[in-house]
């Protein structure tokens, strides 16, 4: 028998906590993008229509600007930003090309059902320089997706439509079950947007991309119901540490 002096005492394990899985995903993606040379930028969640829509070539008649899609506040004086793109507008207004910036954060849309929430998170990035083209955009998107889902991932680019990019694309990855899953949107920055930010579109061009963080987190963690992220259920949150 062991002596009383060297008796084994179980460890009183300190149960550490954890950051939210959405923060984990956001930080991971942002850090990878920063490692490519992008600068982290941030901006307000309460925005003017000018920065949230007008400067991004989203016309007044665009359905997204209607009350059923966008939260308006204080008698239509402001909106809750519907995307993180206004941060890029602010950056392009304040800096001269070359510009490489990313921003991540909360965005708001007037949705509330089993697959859409009134608040969710995005990461968007832009790169503006001379001679930036679609083939560079493709390479960047491959880098991002391979870093998240592995180098064997099958990727599909599809034409899409965003007022602030032209050409625009949505990017799908092929799941293990053989289904194409949409993971991000991207495109060449519409020259109108560059001109809105006083950037000479004859000299400079740019690329832009955006990811829904919840979408990536759901795919990576295997979460099937987006609403689980915001119930603050400890049984749920404790799994991500």
């Amino acid at each position: 028998m062991s002596s009383e002096k060297d008796i084994y005492t179980p460890k009183a394990n300190i149960q550490g906590g954890a950051i939210h899985p959405i923060s984990f995903t956001k930080n991971l993606i942002l850090n990878r993008l920063i490692s490519y040379g992008f600068k982290d930028a941030s901006g307000p969640e309460i925005e003017s229509e000018k920065f949230n829509f007008d400067m991004l070539n989203i016309k007044e008649s665009h359905p997204a600007r209607q009350m059923h899609d966008t939260f308006y506040i204080e008698n239509m004086s402001y909106v809750l930003r519907t995307h993180t793109s206004p941060v890029q507008i602010r950056t392009m207004l304040n800096e001269k090309p070359p510009i490489a910036c990313v921003s991540g954060g909360k965005v708001y849309r007037k949705d509330d059902d089993s697959t859409h929430l009134p608040m969710f998170h995005q990461i968007e990035g832009i790169y503006v320089d001379e001679n930036v083209n679609f083939s560079h955009l493709k390479d960047l998107i491959f880098k991002i997706i391979f870093s998240l889902f592995g180098e064997d991932t099958k990727i599909r680019f599809r034409p899409s439509y965003f007022p602030f990019t032209e050409p625009s694309a949505e990017v799908d990855i092929l799941s293990d079950e053989g289904k194409w899953l949409e993971v991000l949107g991207c495109g060449i920055i519409n020259p109108i947007v560059l001109e809105n930010c006083s950037i000479d579109s004859n000299k400079y061009s740019g690329l832009a991309f955006g990811l829904g963080i919840e979408r990536i987190a759901m795919l990576k963690f295997g979460v099937t119901d987006i609403r689980d992220f915001y119930k603050s259920n400890l049984d749920f949150i404790k799994q991500f540490k």
């Binding site: 490519y36 679609f134 560079h136």
Partner: peptide, 23 residues
Amino acid sequence: VARTIGYDNINQSNFIVSGSNKC
């Protein structure tokens, strides 16, 4: 043009934020 060729058929060119631009 791009959608007729197919986005997937457009080649990639190495994307790099050049040294002087790199933040």
